[in-house]
């Protein structure tokens, strides 16, 4: 299992991006990404070129589309192109999403708390679903856009995501840069996907479907949750209630990004309705502690530290769910 960085929300001139397709792939390569999802608004027309360019530069390109509806934006990754974004509304959202998933797609809510109409129609999630109804999706863009760890909109998304987790619904925690142009010297994050086997579209989608994800500003993480028999579980796993040992290692993704944004990790927490544990991460990046969690609760790994001198969350993972 390898956790590899992806950008799952990108645009080109095939919709309203400034990037030509090759520029997007070149920028993804420069950023050290293993892959992207091309999610132009309401079109797949850039995918073939993106896939070809990706093969040249060894950047995996997941076919995708951003259903840009009046009631919310949804990133649809993989699957068939047969579903029609124009029929998606609060009245039909459940059947539309389940139909897309039946075709093999992962589908999730993009920037759920961005300012919406009349500035950005559909920027805010207006599908009017209760937290208990979000189980139709596979992922949730907990962080969006630039400076993700300090954006007020993302704090609102974190709260909404927590309310969904409290319903015992597992959605992969993902980031969407909503990458339209080649802005430089900016703080951004990536979604790390836990890839089992070769780096492929199917294995990337499998990671999202099973919640093997974390989002981070410049940090790479290894998380190990062991039960008392030594069995190891990935982030996003559904495990039995009981006692566990949580350990791992945090490291910096790249010297360049770390220096540019003054990234410094400090503590790690497991937070959620299953408890609140916090320990320091030692200078070599290691941490470990014991925990106990009751059934129907969740605990989410969160790493804290500094980014450009501001203390904030640097990493969020899909929670462990205790059953």
């Amino acid at each position: 299992m390898k956790y590899l960085p992806f950008e799952l929300h990108t645009h080109t001139q095939h919709s309203d991006g400034d990037f030509i397709v090759s520029e997007l792939i070149e920028n993804a390569k420069k950023a050290g990404l293993a892959g992207i999802a091309l999610t132009d608004h309401n079109t797949y027309s850039g995918y073939n070129e993106a896939s070809d360019e990706g093969k040249k530069l060894e950047v995996l390109v997941i076919p995708g589309i951003e259903w840009t509806t009046f009631y919310g934006h949804l990133t649809v990754l993989g699957g068939s192109a047969s579903n029609d974004w124009r029929v998606v509304s609060p009245a039909t959202i459940k059947e539309n999403v389940l139909s897309a998933r039946k075709s093999g797609a992962c589908i999730g809510v993009a920037h759920p708390t961005r300012v919406g109409y009349p500035i950005c129609t559909g920027g805010w999630d207006d599908f009017l679903l209760k937290p208990s109804e979000y189980g139709i999706f596979t992922h949730y863009e907990v962080w969006s856009y630039l400076n993700p760890s300090v954006q007020h909109a993302n704090l609102l998304s974190e709260r909404k995501y927590a309310s969904i987790c409290e319903e015992n619904i597992r959605l992969a925690c993902v980031y969407g840069r909503d990458w339209h142009r080649g802005d430089s010297n900016v703080v951004y994050a990536a979604t790390y996907l836990g890839i089992q086997g070769d780096l492929s579209i199917d294995n990337a989608l499998d990671a999202i479907r099973n919640g093997r994800t974390y989002i981070s500003c410049g940090l790479h993480a290894i998380f190990v949750l062991n039960d008392t028999n030594g069995v190891e579980y990935n982030v996003g796993a559904r495990v039995r209630a009981g006692e566990y040992r949580f350990s791992g290692k945090i490291s910096y993704f790249s010297d360049y990004y770390t220096k540019l944004n003054s990234i410094e990790y400090m503590e790690i927490s497991l937070i959620g309705n299953g408890g609140n544990y916090t320990v320091p991460i030692n200078k070599d990046g290691f941490f470990e502690f014991n925990l106990k969690c009751k059934e129907k609760k969740y605990l989410q790994p969160v790493v804290y530290g500094n980014v450009k001198g501001i203390y904030s969350k640097l990493l969020l993972a899909t929670p462990y769910f205790f059953e």
């Binding site: 919709s15 309203d16 309401n42 079109t43 124009r86 129609t121």
Partner: peptide, 22 residues
């Protein structure tokens, strides 16, 4: 603020795409 109208096209064989830009 901006008015925004997008145009999408369906051929007899299905959806071809949209011009989602300003």
């Amino acid at each position: 603020l901006k008015n925004l109208i997008t145009l999408s096209i369906d051929s007899p064989h299905g959806y071809l795409g949209a011009a989602h830009r300003h």
